[in-house]
C-alpha cells in the first residue's frame, strides 16, 4: 500500500539547481535511506516532501492525497490549500538534525502539543499517550524537564516521541544523529531501529552507512540533485553500479 509518493521533484535556489527530478515511492513499512555527499540535495528533498521547502516542480502524494500546488510568486510552487497541507504535515512526522524540541515547553508538553492543538485530541488522552511514548523511548523520568536540561541523545529520543504522538503515516528523519556526540548516537539509532522493525514507514537521510544497510529495504544515492543509484541495500552497498557511489562508500572506510 502506497504511503508516500514523490515524482520528479525539482528545486532551484536562484540559479542553483539543487534537485533535478528526484522520485521515490514508499509503501507501508518501507524504510528508505537517502545517502549522498553534502550538497547532493538529500535534505532538501526530504524538506520538499512536507513542503518546508517549496519545490520548483514535481508531484507529491501522501496516502493517496495529491498535494495541490500553485505558483508561489518566487518561481516555486506552494501548497494551494493550507488546510490540506496542514492535514498532510500533521501526519508526516519530521525528526530534525538539531532536534528542534520547543524550548519553552517540557518534554511532555512537546509531545502532546501537536495532538492537542493540531489534531484536536482530548488533552487527557494525549497526556496518557504521551507518557506511554516517553516510557517507550526511555524518558518517562524526564517528562517534566525542559529540553535545555537534556543531552542531545535524550532530546532526539524526545523528538522521536513527539513524532510518534501524531500517529504518523510516514516519518521523515533528517540526519537524526549528525548533531550528536559519538557516544550518544547508539541510543538514538536503537530507537529508530525498533521503529523500523515494527513496520513503520520511514524516509531516512543519514550518514550512518552501516545503519542504513541494516534497517532499510531501499537505498537511494543522490548526487548533484539526481538519483544516481538505487536499490536494495545489499545491492547498493555490495555492488555499487556507479563509480561515484563506489568512491562515496569508499570514503567511509
Amino acid at each position: 500500500m502506497e504511503m508516500l509518493h514523490a515524482d520528479g521533484i525539482r528545486k532551484t535556489f536562484g540559479n542553483l539547481e539543487v534537485l533535478r527530478g528526484v522520485s521515490l515511492t514508499a509503501n507501508k513499512g518501507d524504510v528508505i535511506s537517502l545517502i549522498g555527499g553534502s550538497g547532493s540535495g538529500k535534505s532538501t528533498f526530504l524538506r520538499c516532501l512536507n513542503c518546508l521547502e517549496h519545490p520548483t516542480g514535481g508531484e507529491i502524494r501522501v496516502d493517496g492525497d495529491a498535494i495541490a500546488f500553485r505558483p508561489d510568486g518566487h518561481g516555486n510552487m506552494e501548497p494551494a490549500s493550507k488546510t490540506q497541507m496542514r492535514r498532510i504535515r500533521a501526519r508526516l512526522a519530521m525528526v530534525f538534525q538539531s532536534f528542534n524540541l520547543w524550548s519553552h515547553m517540557t518534554l511532555l508538553e512537546n509531545v502532546i502539543e501537536a495532538p492537542v492543538h493540531v489534531l484536536g485530541v482530548d488533552r487527557k488522552q494525549a497526556v496518557d499517550e504521551g507518557l506511554r511514548l516517553l516510557q517507550r523511548v526511555g524518558l518517562y523520568d524526564k517528562r517534566n524537564t525542559y529540553p535545555a536540561f537534556l543531552s542531545g541523545g535524550q532530546q532526539q529520543r524526545g523528538a522521536i516521541a513527539r513524532a510518534l504522538a501524531v500517529q504518523p503515516l510516514a516519518m521523515l528523519f533528517d540526519e537524526p544523529t549528525s548533531a550528536l556526540d559519538p557516544e550518544l548516537v547508539g541510543e538514538v539509532l536503537k530507537v529508530i531501529r525498533e521503529l523500523a522493525e515494527e513496520g513503520r514507514t520511514m524516509i531516512l537521510v543519514t550518514h550512518e552507512m552501516s545503519f542504513a544497510r541494516d534497517v532499510s529495504n531501499q537505498v537511494l544515492f543522490l548526487h548533484g540533485g539526481l538519483v544516481e543509484d538505487a536499490g536494495p541495500p545489499a545491492e547498493v552497498f555490495g555492488n555499487p553500479k556507479s563509480e561515484r557511489l563506489a568512491r562515496f562508500l569508499g570514503s567511509f572506510h
Binding site: 496542514r86 498532510i88 504535515r89 512526522a93 519530521m94 530534525f96 520547543w102 501537536a114 489534531l119 501524531v166
Partner: peptide, 26 residues
C-alpha cells in the same frame, strides 16, 4: 531560532497557531 518555527510548520500548525503557541512565548 528558525528550527523552532520549522518544527511548528512540520507538525501542521497554522501561522496563527505557530505565533500563539511557539513564536510569541519564546
Amino acid at each position: 531560532p528558525k528550527g523552532q518555527l520549522d518544527a511548528a510548520r512540520a507538525y501542521g500548525m497554522s501561522g496563527l497557531l505557530t505565533f500563539r503557541r511557539i513564536w510569541l512565548p519564546q
